[in-house]
Simulated scan of single mutants.
Amino acid sequence: MDWISKCCCPGSHTSIYKMKTRVFGKLPFGQPVQLYELENKHGMQLSVISFGARIVGLKVPDLNGGVVDVVRGFASMEEYMKDEYYFGAVVGRVAGRISPSNVMIEGKLCNLIPNTQNVHMNGGKNGFDTAIWSAETIEEDDKNGVSGVRFRYVSADGSEGYPGELVTELEYRLTNDNELIIRLKCSTEEDTILSIPVHIYFNLGGEAEKDINEHVLTVLADEYTPTDAEWIPTGEIVPVEGTPYDFRNGKRLGPAIATSQYNGFDDNWCLNHAFRPLTKPSLCAKLYNPKNGVHLDVLTTQPGMTVYTGNFLNKNIVGKYGEINDRHSSICLLAQNYPNAINVPNFPTPVLKRGQSVEHTTIYRFTKHKEKGSARETNPTQ
């Protein structure tokens, strides 16, 4: 498990970064699961595994002079194999709930396999989160001092009811600007649908902080998509103003959760750039922990963001440091398409046509400083 180090020329923007690999565990039939650990010049560390291309650790600098692991997860392969909550996993082909699961894709009826109460959810029973992804390391000496891992997975025609073979490439890159850059590229042999986020559970206080109640969330979205009691979008697109879903000026999550309709959020926000394609990621959300000064900015080219406040987690879920992952112990900021978009004509289309490809980029950018307040971002395209 030796470190591989790269050192760039003095005076350049790049610096030393490190990477190491080892076997994280094995599947029941003996196939090894690889762990990749990256570190930038500031001590920010990213850990990912080939099972579900999962992010299993992300340590970032805080105001106390140390680093804090802001991603919840597990210590062993066995625990990830039992995981029902998609901790750190790539979710696909389509994240969220699809109901009805019998859908029309470019005039063709496709029967997606339901995996919860007659609803197709998060790619089905054997989605991207349970696949072994092939991987190769990315080692570059460019102006950003980037290093990373490139994962690849081929989803077979008919897998979980989806038509067409889908080739997915996913890159995790760690920069010396303390950014985690996630780049997604997909191509298909037949008309199909997709919406693929990485299901990261964040707690900016690390394992010592039991919940996210004091975190301050900002979402740069003027509209959201309401859901019914089963968390299925109704098809409406509604202004957030005057509702519990208005996070444009930032607010503490504890009081916000208390005013939410279902004791927590599991909802899609329509990002203000949703219906205009972007060539570069746009700022869409901010998360701040006042206890240690850790800030997270989220930028994406995706049209929507699902905010999930861990409503279905429970005290029996024990994390990698022995922490309890109970309800509202962490938050997911999922850059993706609108849930159930294939069944709602006025949502951005999730269809990827035969012979075409699609690319998206999401950036999680970390900084550290104390903040007196949170004002609405006036230029969210920067």
Rank of each mutant, 00 (worst) to 15 (best):
G57I: 04
F312N: 14
G242Q: 07
P226N: 11
V70C: 03
S330M: 13
E179C: 13
V23P: 00
I193W: 08
Y262K: 10
A229G: 07
M81Y: 01
V71K: 11
Y201W: 13
C7R: 15
S15I: 00
T300L: 02
E171G: 09
D142T: 12
S101K: 05
E207Q: 13
V90D: 02
G242L: 08
G148R: 04
K125M: 09
T361A: 08
Q336Y: 06
S282W: 04
L27W: 08
E78C: 07
I342H: 06
T227R: 00
Y224V: 06
G73H: 07
N314M: 06
I200G: 01
K108G: 05
D2Q: 14
V298A: 02
V91T: 08
T367C: 01
F151A: 06
Y153H: 15
W133Q: 09
S147H: 08
P114W: 01
T367D: 06
L109D: 13
L299W: 10
P61I: 01
S47R: 15
L287Y: 09
P114S: 06
W133M: 11
A53D: 09
M44H: 03
E79F: 00
K6N: 13
A53V: 08
M1T: 14
I4L: 14
R183M: 01
V90E: 04
V358E: 12
G96W: 05
L112P: 10
G164V: 12
P281G: 07
G158A: 09
L27C: 10
A131H: 13
K82S: 15
E209M: 10
H13W: 14
A256M: 13
A256D: 10
L352H: 07
E84L: 08
A75S: 14
K82P: 03
K143V: 13
I317P: 04
Y80M: 07
C332H: 10
S101V: 01
T361N: 06
V56K: 05
